[in-house]
Design a binder for these strands. Structure first.
Lengths: 122, 122
DNA sequence: CTAACGTTTCCATTATTCTGGAAATATGGA
DNA sequence: TCCATATTTCCAGAATAATGGAAACGTTAG
């Protein structure tokens, strides 16, 4: 993922309504949700909702498909994963520091070697 | 992690210079980097750099410690991990959809079927 | 065709953020 | 003490983003 794409995606998520919309779509899975349902659930007026949905779409984090009279929005999971990877790559210089294991000087009695192997399952 | 915290963190990352700074710090690991080195590497004037470092710090994504005449900044890995978790939780309704496995209709072929069912293990 | 519904566009107002020069503030050394 | 170096604060101009009412647009059913 390129830096500019990442900035666009992060900008899209850096706003209360859009973040709420995105998380709703993440929950909804590939099936997605109609624009109206989203607006109803989050209590957003149509114009505002549409503005934010357009933002998420422009950022590549959501897609839409027409289904009858409804427009169904769904999260772009692949893009979300790319973004997460972009943020965590080369964590600690790439040396034995799986993302979930990055815990700097925060705690006291932790070892310094045991986390070298990545645990990809959460 | 709370929504407002997430928005603050995402806002902090949603800007080219700050994203670059953060990734530099992620690479640097817990050792961190002096403010000056960051500015040098990214060619940012002092005022601009300080502005963005303050932003990252306010957002909880970086911390600073004084070391002699230098101020050393380092990434707050724990916060970064919280943020990633926040974005990916309840992916696909929580049904057997580990973050890295969320791949909806990404491929060239479209799938307009009801994919509300979980895919076991990608 | 017409009516009804769902969604988007238009628009103006308001609010927030980015930028960087210059000056102020810390820190350590001579 | 005084100087050099490192970083932050002050400031203000320029740019960008959020909001929501009203109207326009698309789609389907009757």
């Amino acid at each position: 993922m390129e830096t500019n794409e990442a900035v666009r995606s992060l900008s899209a998520l850096a706003q209360g309504s859009r973040l709420a919309i995105f998380r709703l779509l993440v929950r909804a899975g590939p099936a997605g949700m109609a624009a109206g349902s989203i607006g109803e659930q989050l209590e957003l007026p149509p114009a505002t909702l549409s503005f934010h949905l357009a933002g998420l779409t422009r950022a590549g984090l959501a897609r839409s498909r027409q289904e009858g009279r409804f427009v169904i929005y769904s999260a772009a999971f692949e893009r979300m994963n790319d973004l997460v990877a972009f943020l965590t790559t080369n964590c600690c210089g790439g040396v034995s520091c799986a993302p979930q294991a990055c815990q700097p000087e925060t705690d006291k009695g932790e070892s310094h070697e045991e986390t070298s192997r990545a645990r990809r399952r959460a």
